[in-house]
Every structure is written in structure tokens, then in C-alpha cells.
Amino acid sequence: MIRGSIAAIVTPMNASGELDDEGLARLVDFHLRQGTHGLLVAGTTGESATLDFHEHIGLIRRVVDCVQGEIPVIAGTGSNCTREANELSLAAKQAGADACLLITPYYLRPPQHGLYAHFEAIARAVDIPQILYNVPARTCCELSVETVARLSRIANIVGIKDATGDLQRVRLLVERCAPGFALYAGDDRSALDTMLLGGVGCMSVTANIAPRAMAEIYEAVRRGDVRTAMKLDNRLRVLHAALAVQSNPIAAKWLLHQMGLIGPGIRLPLTWLSDEHHAVLLDVLSSLPSHTP
């Protein structure tokens, strides 16, 4: 089982929006040195919606090559098209990913039995550990607890990233899903509470900027040191909020650029961080412990 602080990494780009291999290598090295437990590549934070198929799979392959087996790599391979999700998942497996993350189909708003059939079909088609991704604020599509519980009985559907921040839902998922089914927080603000309720880690935007602190929160929970975990979490609250000033990953990319890790690139329809947020984010960055690479 993949556990701990899994950084949902940005996709480095240059000013013209082309993928930046050197920036990607720096970013991966930063996480390896800072103690990140795993990387999620080509997820929402990685601007997967703006990558073409070859860029998407090439990005996964490059991260796998950079990591060299030191930590697990989870590949975002979801789609609102079941056939495309199959193709992306198979290609990610062939590229060396350790698991796939599959977002709920967006825009189409399928019924629950359609969602079950979608994820079951991908699981049957591609023999790789698969993690569901529930983020209704972005997709307008929510996996019910009952549907997740049914899917948790399929052997290679091994977990769910839940980004609702709903702790009652977390309790129900822990209670009703199959033994060993992994629950990952997808909302940084509720990540600690999710882990205390039985989650095995978080897939984090905040870990882009403060990877060591996010990893230390998980380690503190693992050893039962709730006091230390709460202290660390409280110090990151302002960063959690700051990263949401504009649509993710706008603020995360701007901060990583200020840290010298990536170039100043993002793809339309997303745009570079608005000027009025610069001073606030710089103040947040300066207040973080050990924020420099």
C-alpha cells in the first residue's frame, strides 16, 4: 500500500507553455531530498486537462525515470471517456507507474450504476493498482459511499482520494469499504483529520511548497504523536488558504517559480498569478520553515 504524503506535483513549463524537462528534474529531486513519500503526476494540479496524450504519458515516463524507484509514482489517468481512461491507464502501466488515479467522469453527470460500470471496466481492462478520485467541486459528479464500497471489493481498485473535506463521509468510507482499502485525503485542510480517522495519507497540493512539513505530519500520525502533527498542521493553515487564492495550480506554480524550482509557465485557459496576490503569497512563503530548496 502506498502511504504518506503524496505530492500532487505541478507540471513545469516554460514561459511559452512548453513542458520543461529540467524544471521537472529539479522538482522531483527536491521532493526526494525533502522526504516526500510518493508523487502524483498528471493530476489536476499537473494540468492534465491541457496535456495531449503523448505529453501525458511522456511526463509520467520522465517522472518514473527521475525517481529511479526511490518512491512510488501514481499517474493520473482518468477521463470522462471510459475508452480513453483505459488507454491512458495501460500506457501509464507500460511507462512504469506504480498505480493510477482515476477521476470521476466530468461534465456527463452519469448515474451511480454508470460510475460503477466505468471504474469496473477500467479495473478489468488494466492490471495495475487503481485509486478512485472523488472531487465533486470540480467534476459536478460525486461517487456515493455505497458505490465506493462496492468498488472497493474489486481486487485492483485499492483506494480512493476523497477531496470533499467531509469528515462524516470519511467515517462512512472507513466503516463500509473492504478491509485494506486505502483512503487518501485530497483536501489539505482536512488531511490531518482524515488520517486520524483512518486515512493512510494525503495527495497534497501544499506538499508542492512544504513537502517536508507535510511528510512530517504523516510521520507524526504514524507514530501516534498527535500533538506534533497538530502543531505542524496549524503552521501550514495559512499556506493551505493561500494556495486557493486562484484556481489550482496557479498559486502553487507561482510560488515554486519564486523558489527557483520551475519556470514561469502555465497553459491557457489558466493564467499566471494576478499581481494583487503577489505580496500576500511572498509573506506566506517567507514565514514557512525551511521553504528554500
Rank of each mutant, 00 (worst) to 15 (best):
G35M: 13
G35I: 13
G35V: 13
G35R: 11
G35S: 13
G35C: 13
G35D: 13
T36L: 09
T36N: 03
H37Q: 12
H37R: 09
H37T: 09
H37N: 13
H37P: 11
H37I: 11
G38R: 12
L39A: 11
L40C: 14
L40D: 12
L40Q: 13
V41S: 04
V41K: 03
A42I: 10
A42R: 05
A42S: 12
A42K: 08
A42P: 00
G43Q: 03
G43T: 07
T44G: 10
T44V: 11
T44Q: 07
T45R: 04
T45Q: 06
T45E: 03
T45F: 03
G46M: 05
G46S: 08
G46F: 07
G46W: 05
G46V: 04
E47Y: 03
E47I: 00
S48H: 12
S48K: 00
A49V: 13
A49N: 10
T50K: 01
T50P: 01
T50D: 01
L51D: 00
L51P: 01
D52P: 10
D52K: 01
D52Y: 08
F53A: 09
F53V: 04
F53M: 06
F53E: 05
H54N: 13
H54P: 00
H54W: 06
H54I: 07
H54L: 10
H54D: 15
E55R: 04
E55A: 02
E55V: 01
H56C: 02
H56P: 03
H56F: 01
H56G: 02
H56D: 06
I57R: 05
I57Q: 03
I57W: 02
L59Q: 07
L59K: 00
L59M: 12
I60V: 15
I60W: 05
I60A: 06
R61F: 03
R61M: 00
R62Q: 14
R62M: 08
R62H: 11
R62Y: 02
R62L: 07
V63G: 10
V63F: 09
V64L: 05
D65G: 14
D65Q: 15
D65K: 15
C66K: 14
C66R: 14
V67L: 09
V67Q: 02
V67K: 02
V67P: 08
Q68K: 15
Q68T: 11
G69V: 02
